[in-house]
Amino acid sequence: MNYILHLLIMIEIYLILAYGLNLVVGFGGLLSLCHAVFYGIGAYASTLLMIKTGISFLPAMLMGMAITALFAFLVGIPALRFRGDHFVLVTLGFQMIVFTVLYNWVGLTRGPYGIPGIPRPVVFGYEITSLIGYLILVGVILMVTIIILFILYKSPFGLALKALRDDEMAAEGLGKSPIHTFLYAFIIAGGFASLAGSLYATYVTYIDPTSFTLDESIFLLSVLLVGGTGNRLGPLVGVVFMILLPEALRFLGLPDTVAPNVRQMIYGLTLILLMFLRPQGIAGEYKINHYGKAEN
């Protein structure tokens, strides 16, 4: 039972991450490889605020969100000067830099030792310690996230993002500003990733930089590629599939000596097959194809 609750909480956390990233990848058509950066900065910012200043979880989470949004703004300004492959590489660069800083700024982050004993969240006087409590707390924040993002998905802002994604030159010719629109999307995605980071930190009560590596960013991107982007259903399908598939493979009854490796291989093979069979993702409506974006 606890195992299932744990999986549900992780699914909730990843849904927050995936729905936010969907705005950039699915609506904006920009393949960002630094989403784990915002996830990590949110986790570290809220944790350090809670430990060093003693403020409670909700204000720490919101302040962490503000800090991360500011950081996303600073990353977005240079990164969004690029498109396609170059954008991917620039975000990859930021991912490496931030990881290195988190890993080596021992005075602030304790580097590779990580931060143990992160306080449990106290929300409106209740201290949350049980798995059910976390499931509800993360669930409530997930609901708020989804409501806000779904409104954005179908707002004129969402439509402008999709227009810019499909043809930036034509959309700009209709008066849509690429830099403003993409930057808003980037900041919003960063802000929501930070929420997920704060929740993750207080849920596992220990963070270290290895939770926020390039692998994590790639995982988040593959969640969207598998599930599908540009709509409401894709991220849900992707998260559930990508988190449950490795778990399901545990029950294959493989001999212990080879099990982890075989699981990894089946996992990888599934992704490859999916890309052949459904390049737009299981529930996606838009096929990510940044090579096709010709500039005149």
């Binding site: 999709k162 227009a163 994604r165 499909d166 043809d167 010719g173 409506e285 838009y286 005149n296």
Partner: peptide
């Protein structure tokens, strides 16, 4: 406003 030589509609919309 401009009509492009290569049209440029928003294909997925």
């Amino acid at each position: 406003g401009r009509l492009f030589q290569d049209v440029r509609v928003f294909e997925n919309l």
